[in-house]
Design a protein around this nucleic acid. Structure first.
Lengths: 290, 290
DNA sequence: CATCCACTGAAAATTTCTTTTCATGACAGT
DNA sequence: ACTGTCATGAAAAGAAATTTTCAGTGGATG
């Protein structure tokens, strides 16, 4: 074992910040359909990524490999580690025809997004976020944009049941300052900001940071500018065979977080849910007496 | 396409009889830890097998490949196919999310839900619903419950951009009668109602039916009572390793519907989106003059 | 507006890989 | 023992791949 724990994918991610435009483009190409996309010759992958071969050499050296052959050797090791599972051997896709119906095309895309997102996602990040959200001393604030507002609302609705001190920011940005005013140091602002990034999100994040709030961002693979201000950011794949982006995988992570938080504070949550149940009953009685 | 569907492994096996000593030795070496052992250069695999490079060339040509690069290209394809296999995919996740990490368990559950839902779902139903929603003469009304309200909102937000005459019902059921009052025959009421079915939904659906509205229901596999009144119902699998139900697959169908509708009325939609774009710009100017 | 600097790819230089050629040796049949 | 056939690998030739060099580009800075 030479490299042991760190995968090439990890190395690429940890260097994303110091990569140049052409190099980022190459990195994207490599991570897309990773690790198979890195199997060919340097010429092939340069062509696939639409960059020159010198760019490839420069990047892999920047990543810490001796040269392209060294880089590829590591990749081969990883492929080996992935494939050596006996069940996976020789087994191939059952249905050859992906089908052209929109449902099938969507299913393909979402599976890809999910896979890619999970490959990129660090479980430590996930666990840290879950821990932060579980801390009842911290207030939670949720905010989303025009499209992502529904996701923020979904997240909020669940967290509201699980724990106290949760707030959903109106999608109308003019009311945000009032919310910021109420934030205390250690509170958490959860931002949903995808593609068409909304400029106001950065202002909001900046203001919240000044108040000492921690920021968690759900964004796409290209990254909202607000992500730079965030303690943790989830970069989710959102591509769909559609004019619109897909929020399915984002919702997936939200749901997993809900469960993680709920699970870590189950005893308290159970009590809350029982009480809530009682309140619903009472409300019903109010409405429909008899 | 020289070898087409047969795997390289198959080809080697079927040729074992006509291979010479050195070639058999090479074949053994290749099949051992297949297909990873064939990933390197001809020099590497020759060394590993303890034979000369000409032997490698001669064998792969005997197997029917044009040369070593051709042979290796086929091998790469197979590696790719193997890695794209769902089980192998899962193992890749497992690398990043070891053991029974919640992300893994969720991913498993969601894939199962998606598969099951697509199996149960009739594409004809989907297409019918898409056609109904594309009909601009029909008004659309969206409504959801406490949890599913966010899904209704998400659906509504998109459809509002795509076509006119869309309405989101407040989650407060006391205001519903007013909406029903406005419904015309042929209008469509889209109801989200899962588990803990809300009694009011049935009343709403009944009232809407009386006004001549068509009803479409998103529910779970057990079926909302409102589904009985519906023209079409989507029964989605919602099971998750959580105290909560999963809305991921429901959102998946919603997104697929959005695309289907958008696609069937693209010309008109394009115009609407352009206009909307302009309106957003104007709003920005209002907000931040200068 | 000039200057600098980092990025990038074309092309040359270098290295490595792939294929072909050819000499050697083993072996079977005569 | 002779001869022809085949298998095999060393080495040369040819083809690609990899790396290096270098000049052009564009954006940042004073």
């Amino acid at each position: 074992m030479t490299v042991a724990s760190k995968t090439v994918s990890d190395v690429i991610h940890s260097h994303l910040g110091v990569l140049t435009r052409a190099e980022k483009q190459l990195a994207e190409s490599l991570l897309d359909n990773y690790p198979v996309s890195g199997l060919g010759s340097i010429t092939t992958i340069a062509e696939n990524a639409g960059v020159s071969t010198p760019t490839v050499v420069r990047m892999v050296q920047k990543l810490g490999f001796k040269g392209y052959p060294d880089f590829q050797a590591h990749l081969h090791q990883e492929v080996e580690a992935t494939i050596s599972n006996p069940i996976a051997k020789h087994d191939r896709w059952a249905q050859n025809a992906p089908g052209t119906h929109i449902l099938n095309r969507f299913a393909d895309a979402i599976m890809g997004n999910l896979r890619q997102t999970l490959t990129d996602l660090d479980t430590a990040t996930f666990d840290s976020v879950a821990a932060l959200l579980s801390d009842r001393k911290r207030g939670l604030y949720f905010v989303g944009g025009r499209i992502t507002g529904a996701l923020a609302e979904y997240f909020f609705t669940h967290m509201q049941v699980i724990r106290p001190a949760t707030t959903l920011l109106s999608s109308n940005s003019s009311s945000w300052p009032q919310y910021v005013l109420n934030m205390n140091a250690g509170d958490i602002l959860i931002i949903f900001d995808i593609r068409r990034y909304e400029q106001e999100m950065v202002s909001l994040a900046t203001a919240a940071r000044k108040r000492g709030a921690e920021i968690i961002v759900f964004t796409d693979q290209w990254g909202s500018p607000a992500a730079k201000l965030a303690r943790h950011a989830f970069r989710v794949r959102i591509e769909a065979p559609s004019a619109w982006d897909s929020s399915v995988v984002t919702l997936f992570i939200v749901e997993a977080l809900i469960e993680a938080v709920q699970n870590s504070t189950w005893d308290e949550t159970k009590e809350r849910m029982k009480t809530l149940e009682g309140l619903f009953e009472e409300t019903k009685l109010f409405r429909k007496p008899g």
